[in-house]
Amino acid sequence: MASIMLSDVTVDIPIFGVSSRNAKGTLLRHLKRSVDYDTVWIRALDGVDLTLKDGDRIGLIGPNGAGKSTLLRVMGGILTPTAGYVQSSGDIATMFDLGLGMSYDATGRENIMIRGMLLGHSRDEMVSKAAEITEFADLGDRIDHPVRTYSSGMVARLSFSISTAIEPEILLLDEGIGTADAQFTARAKERLNEFMLRAGILVLASHSDAMLEEFCDQALVLDRGRVTFLGPVGAALRHYHASREAQ
């Protein structure tokens, strides 16, 4: 059973200035016993309470800088909250950067292994998935050539195929995957649907109303780190657009 629970989660992100970035500056400040004016703390999340269980598909809505990515990172266990706590159970796959771990000197097949293992799979699992990934990416024999010899479309197809081949219990997606790819065919769309439906819990941060309505049933609206609305996706989008127009 997959679940994530956030209790009164607050995240303050330090933005270091030149002297607080350096050991010398920090040491001098301690010697002078002065206050650290050089570090600015940004409150990225402010008292977020949320419980997700198996079958939940939730969208994150909010303008840039509202805390969507920070919330995903907290859920994924990448950022530890500065106050409050997170408890989760189940395999979590975080997909914020499709090209992560893509080595251009390595072959497509080697990249399947690396990327798959980065997403938490074993080598053997990826070996057994390699044929299917190659077929979907439509790479044929080129899979054993270095990725640097691929066209940009081939690279995009490969990374999309690898990322959607895994079966996580909890899937955290930033900005939907593959939406930036112009060659987004019906076949790819179908694969993406299946991939998202397989996950026990889906959390999707997106600016696309269509995408949110298609994949999520609940949505959470964030504004400067605070949850301003949590409910059905249609109502959440209406709330979000109304509050944007009001400003």
């Binding site: 990172r73 990448i78 975080t94 914020f96 950067d97 992560l100 771990g101 980065l118």
Partner: peptide
């Protein structure tokens, strides 16, 4: 940074 900020390894 790229790996650390986007995977929970």
């Amino acid at each position: 940074a790229g790996y650390i900020r986007s995977t929970s390894l």
